[in-house]
Design a protein around this nucleic acid. Structure first.
Lengths: 325, 325
DNA sequence: TTGTATGCGTTATCAA
DNA sequence: TTGATAACGCATACAA
């Protein structure tokens, strides 16, 4: 079937070792020999079997990437950058959609270990999992704390929450509500909420946070939100998806945004910029997050003695648009 | 470091063969032996090395998935379903973002072969590539013809194009323009355009198709479109991203949609339904496409003699919303 | 400069 | 019911 190194060797009239040398450019090789081997490789359309290489070499060049779902443009975009960058560095990505489910995450984690991945980048909005602490397996968290030894990359969630809240206040809002996704205790994203509360307190305004538990009840919760808070004039949604839902519910209730209620979201994905550019939002440096996370992971894998920082915080940008004007 | 089968064997006081038997539930095993082995496995926290298994077994349970980018919600959602389903069937996904570049595709193809993937699912909007015809390597195309032996899964693009165009006509449009992404000769998505032209001809209306070549010139092309066609009253965009751009440009030009121009897109991703629900569109059965593509691929891999259809066409759904009312 | 022998971790074959 | 041995494809140590 597929040609192996031995087939190449035979055709070139040399030993497998020599072929291996040519392939890896290691040791001394005669010029003529190299040519013969190269020809044989081309003729047989040979390429090395990475599985065998991995088994021997104790390195697979495989990276595990665990996030809730590529359906969500934020993760889709982040994973795009992760994979593209990894690819340019010679690493391949094993994709895992955890759907925010801990059982899935644990399954994937085991699978990735069985496949001997060189490292894992993971982010998902639920509790940190002890299972990620695997001796000898480098891990980097994105927007998520796993343990005090696993580095975390995130954007400046506190500053983002602050900018968002302050913008609403500056635009004249005083009854401002914050809407979260499901609670996530160990997530830097919590800082968005903390910042919101801090800013409100600083301005001596009352704060109120809603949490969207399940997808099913979201619409109802949002309806109730408007009914229960007739004086609400500002909403800070913790991501653009939630902001979109707010927009839709407001519309059905005849509430005009931004005239009656101003709204700001969070994330600023390419898709949001295209599909919903009128939404004010906090732009996360998605590509930068990917770069930094990968950088930390590969530093661990290729292990210079370089000190790895425990936490990297990247800058965000306020993107004001129509929903806060 | 990581325990191997031999470590387990030693601890359990049996041979590696026996451990392997327990792991794979193959052959006869004494009840006590099994218990001892199970205990040793737990104690050492052992799990088998899939790389070694793959090398021996000639099967990796790895699937290559090549699409332009997970940043695009359509592919993001498709890949989510592909991976989730594959995972439930015991397969893992190696992710490849080709960015619509043929050179990248070819690179990825080689990489996937080196890694001995069991099969490949690919879709990307450019020419079919001969390189995909790899003896012994099952491939399935999504919305893309590679060769006459590689099966293709797509949704009913012709019917979708027809429904979209007919809707615009029914809503009173007569000067209807179609906007494509970059030309893609070998893509079933071309049928959208064909259907548009057919329907226009049937109604004895003139047809005109614009093609968005590069991202840079898009905005200008769209501007020109409106300037050059002041009487345009209907636009059929070949995907929702393009439709979003039309919406934006129309707004800057003070053209009201749907009052002056009606607009319909194509895809109907979850993200679009959330962020831009007012856009009329053709809903592709993304999950179904994933299911069918995977089904065809796995049938080839696990190779019952079952006949594999060359082409599978899945039904689409018209989703009318405000931009055509 | 090149070749031989060995091992990476697993499983299948065959013998015990 | 269990164990010794060989083989998967490759790259290294060592010898030539």
């Amino acid at each position: 079937m597929k040609p192996k190194i031995e087939d190449v060797a035979k055709l070139a009239g040399v030993s497998p070792t020599t072929v291996s040398r040519v392939l890896n450019n290691r040791g001394y090789i005669g010029e003529k020999t190299r040519q013969k081997v190269d020809e044989a490789i081309k003729e047989l359309n040979y390429y090395p079997n990475e599985v065998a290489r991995s088994l021997f070499g104790k390195k697979t060049n495989l990276l595990g990437v665990i996030f809730p779902t590529t359906s969500n443009p934020f993760y889709g975009q982040l994973i795009f950058h992760l994979e593209t960058l990894a690819s340019s560095l010679g690493y391949k990505v094993l994709l895992c959609n955890s759907q925010g489910r801990e059982d899935k995450e644990i399954e994937y984690l085991e699978m990735l270990q069985r496949h001997q991945v060189d490292g894992i980048i993971a982010g998902a909005h639920n509790e940190g999992i002890e299972a990620y602490s695997i001796p000898g397996l480098p891990v980097v968290g994105v927007d998520r704390y796993f343990s005090d030894t696993i580095p975390v990359v995130s954007s400046d969630n506190y500053e983002g929450g602050r900018l968002a809240t302050e913008l609403l206040i500056k635009r004249g809002c005083s009854t401002i509500i914050h809407i979260n996704g499901p609670i996530s205790l160990k997530t830097p994203a919590n800082l968005r909420r903390k910042a919101y509360e801090d800013v409100m307190k600083e301005h001596e305004l009352p704060h109120l946070t809603y949490e969207m538990e399940s997808e099913e009840t979201e619409e109802r919760v949002l309806q109730q939100l408007f009914d229960a808070n007739p004086k609400v004039d500002g909403i800070f949604a913790s991501d653009d998806i939630i902001a979109s839902k707010v927009l839709r519910v407001a519309k059905t209730k005849g509430i005009h945004i931004p005239n009656q209620v101003k709204l700001i979201g969070y994330d600023g994905t390419e898709t949001q910029q295209l599909m919903l550019p009128e939404l004010s939002t906090i732009l996360q440096p998605i590509k930068l997050i990917a770069e930094k996370a990968l950088d930390l992971l590969i530093k661990q894998i290729e292990g210079g003695k370089e000190e790895i920082p425990y936490e990297v915080v990247l800058p965000i940008t306020l993107l004001e648009s129509e929903t806060t004007r």
